[in-house]
């Protein structure tokens, strides 16, 4: 097996593993008993999809997907922050929560 074939095989296997990780994250979002579980799962999903962007950058030999990964890191951080603030405020006013 040449090194190029090994890299192609490794990328194929890694696509499968990362997609399995994303699927398990979706399972936790659907099941998640509390709001915080869903936020944690969404955070991990963002990080996994960043890994997927890196894989696709190698696969297609196109560095534009790395820019997507940088932007995704920033947007994912802001999402987590906003949802955590929202959960805190929702708890502070229990008469307005469901």
């Amino acid at each position: 097996m040449t090194p190029e074939q090994f890299l192609d095989l490794a990328i194929d296997v890694s696509f499968a593993l990362v997609m399995a990780s994303v699927a398990l994250g979706f399972y936790r979002i659907v099941r998640g008993p509390s709001f915080g579980d869903r936020v944690v799962s969404l955070d991990m999903l963002t990080v996994s999809i960043m890994g997927f962007c890196g894989l696709f950058a190698i696969f297609s030999d196109d560095t534009a997907f790395l820019d997507v990964a940088v932007v995704l890191a920033l947007v994912g951080f802001l999402t987590t922050l906003a949802l955590a603030r929202f959960a805190e405020r929702r708890r502070a006013r229990p008469e307005e929560s469901e």
Binding site: P3, L7, I11, S14, L17, V18, A20, S21, V47, L55
Partner: peptide, 21 residues
């Protein structure tokens, strides 16, 4: 070969994270 090993290790760690989740 180095890149392939890094990619595989990273994918396995991503899967471990979601299994932990």
């Amino acid at each position: 070969i180095a890149a392939g090993l890094l990619v595989l290790t990273g994918a396995v760690f991503s899967l471990i994270a979601s299994i932990g989740l």
